[in-house]
């Protein structure tokens, strides 16, 4: 749905731009293409890494790793799995829901969801390429720590 919207926006923009100034549009297309091919080698690495990650950490495996343990060790395990995995929300949310239904703790699920979205270990090479090492390490580690705070608050609000 969103992809269609994005395409409509891009194509609409392209048509308007071309009507206004074909020369400028040509430059825009070239810039877009250059930016894409510049980053493609790093992109390819990340996508290949995700391929390996998805194979070894299937939703089934994740379910076995996350939510089994309780307390802080359980949160730690969930946060590590959340950090290294990269699965879309439409897979992650129902997964977390089914684990909750099977008795997993709310804080363990919250830290899993939060690290899943904010911490990206497999996308780190790409982030590093754009933002540099310092930013990549800082943003990911701060997000990791913050995920525990989020989980504790969610535990207090939802668990109560």
């Amino acid at each position: 749905m969103f992809t269609i919207f994005l395409y409509l926006l891009a194509l609409g923009g392209l048509v308007i731009s071309f009507a206004k100034d074909p020369q400028k549009t040509r430059v825009a297309l070239m810039k877009g293409w250059k930016a894409f091919t510049n980053i493609l080698p790093d992109f390819a690495v990340v996508l290949a890494l995700i391929g390996i990650m998805l194979t070894y950490l299937s939703p089934h495996t994740i379910a076995a790793l996350v939510g089994k343990n309780s307390g802080f060790p359980g949160m730690l395990a969930s946060s590590i799995v959340g950090s290294v995995t990269l699965i879309p929300g439409f897979v992650a949310f129902p997964l977390a829901k089914s684990l909750l239904d099977r008795g997993a703790g709310i804080m363990q699920m919250a830290v899993f969801i939060s690290t899943l979205m904010m911490v990206g270990v497999v996308t780190a090479p790409l982030e590093n390429r754009y933002f540099g090492k310092k930013e990549t390490i800082l943003r990911n580690s701060l997000s990791y720590i913050f995920s525990f705070i989020v989980a504790i608050i969610i535990g207090m609000v939802v668990g109560a």
Binding site: G13, L14, V27, A28, A35
Partner: peptide
């Protein structure tokens, strides 16, 4: 299979993003 799927997903969403970025850059 997953790697190919990732490339397919990337190729679906990335072209309009870079197209829009090119236009944004120019306009």
């Amino acid at each position: 299979k997953y790697t190919a799927g990732n490339f397919a997903e990337m190729l679906a969403i990335i072209p309009p993003i870079f197209l829009l970025l090119g236009l944004l850059d120019v306009w």
